[in-house]
């Protein structure tokens, strides 16, 4: 019987289990709860008991540390030889010419336009609308309902929060977090952070 390990914790793990059950009812799902300690280190010993032997895996983790935790988890699973196919939830419309990397999740009702390239480990939330010819880097987190215009480029490890709209052809550099609702019409430099609780942007400078 085909089987899949779904690794994560909390509500996201429960959600991923339900989503995979709905997508592929014939799949034997094995949930693996992964905790982290006070210093945010995963207890990776739980992965030692996983047996590849034809099984696939899915890492269900949030955008903690600019999505590096989910990436770390995915990397550990890839090290162990797991294939990690993308999860496309029912009701999502993914164009036939779009490409999806491993461990990508496309939420229910999301639209991914023609020619889009979605990097591995990226999460596209429910109802998000990704215009045609967009390139979204690896390990990004696109919150539910986000709208991204055509031919936009979203860098690796970017987080786009609720209510964000990215204009056509706009480029958002890697490691950005945009968590202020509204339309972005100009390019955003890498390592720029916009949070509603801050009075100004947060930027990283390194010469």
């Amino acid at each position: 019987m085909r089987s899949k390990y779904v690794i994560g914790n909390g509500a996201l793990l429960d959600w991923a289990m339900a989503a995979w059950r709905e997508v592929d009812p014939g799949l034997e799902l094995r949930p693996v709860k992964l905790d982290q300690d006070a210093a945010y280190a995963f207890d990776l010993s739980v992965l030692d008991n996983l047996i590849v032997d034809g099984a696939t895996a899915f890492a269900a983790y949030d955008d903690q540390f600019l999505n590096f935790r989910r990436f770390e988890l995915m990397a550990k699973l890839k090290e162990r030889g797991f294939s990690m196919p993308a999860l496309v939830c029912p009701g999502a419309l993914v164009a036939s010419t779009a490409s999806l990397g491993e461990n990508v999740m496309i939420g229910a009702g999301a639209i991914v336009g023609h020619g889009c390239q979605i990097g591995f480990n990226t999460v596209i939330g429910s109802g998000a609308n990704i215009g045609s010819a967009c390139r979204i880097g690896n390990s990004a987190w696109i919150e539910a309902g986000v709208v991204i215009g055509r031919a936009a480029k979203i860098g690796a490890n970017v987080t786009l929060g609720t209510g964000v709209i990215i204009g056509d052809t706009v480029e958002v550099g890697k490691f950005c977090a945009i968590d202020v609702a509204g339309k972005i019409t100009k390019n955003i430099a890498a390592k720029t952070f916009l949070h509603a609780s801050f009075d100004t942007s947060i930027n990283i400078v390194e010469l």
Binding site: D199, T200, S201, N203, I204, E206, L207
Partner: peptide, 9 residues
Amino acid sequence: GEVMLTTFK
């Protein structure tokens, strides 16, 4: 040398 900066008003 990698510096994060912001301003609180």
